[in-house]
């Protein structure tokens, strides 16, 4: 058996109201050091985690949303967002952070990490994983 497994991190909770989003991001960043095949899912209220324009200055909790921009540098570039979850919340991909990575197999071209997929497509992606972590 190969040492590389397909890890999926499922993010379904909004940021700030609870700590789950922030602490899952910490796990995701650590996972990069293990050279596994990592994918992220943002569905349900999880899509709010990667919404643009977060400003926590008045709140006093750290705004961790800029950290998502670093994921591409950690080779975490398979980020799936459920279309139905976006639509249900009146959002489009333009309301989300622009997360990109540089593709080493394509002359370091900058590419989008976020893939908006339908429920059916997402179900298939989730089905293909070895380990599913949820928070």
């Amino acid at each position: 058996m190969s040492d590389t497994k397909k890890f999926l991190f499922v993010n379904r909770k909004a940021p700030y109201g609870t700590i789950y989003a922030w602490e899952s991001l910490e796990v995701i960043l650590i996972s990069a050091a293990f050279e596994q095949d990592v994918s992220l899912v943002f569905a349900d209220d999880g899509v709010f985690q990667i919404a643009k324009g977060q400003d926590t200055t008045e709140l006093g909790i750290k705004n961790f949303s800029p950290t998502y921009n670093a994921l591409g540098d950690y080779d975490i570039n398979k980020i799936y967002v459920e279309k139905e979850s976006l639509e249900a919340r009146g959002l489009t991909v333009d309301d989300l952070l622009k997360l990109t990575y540089e593709d080493e197999d394509d002359d370091w071209a900058e590419k989008d990490s976020i893939h908006v997929v339908s429920s059916a497509e997402l179900a298939e992606i989730m089905d293909q994983q070895d380990v599913v972590l949820s928070f």
């Binding site: 650590i30 050091a33 293990f34 596994q36 599913v132 972590l133 949820s134 928070f135």
Partner: peptide, 20 residues
């Protein structure tokens, strides 16, 4: 210990089950 222990468990184990 560190968060790496969780990822390692995911790699080493046949099943990872989350309770929350």
């Amino acid at each position: 210990s560190g968060l790496g222990q969780l990822i390692e468990a995911g790699i080493q184990c046949d099943r990872l089950v989350v309770f929350g």
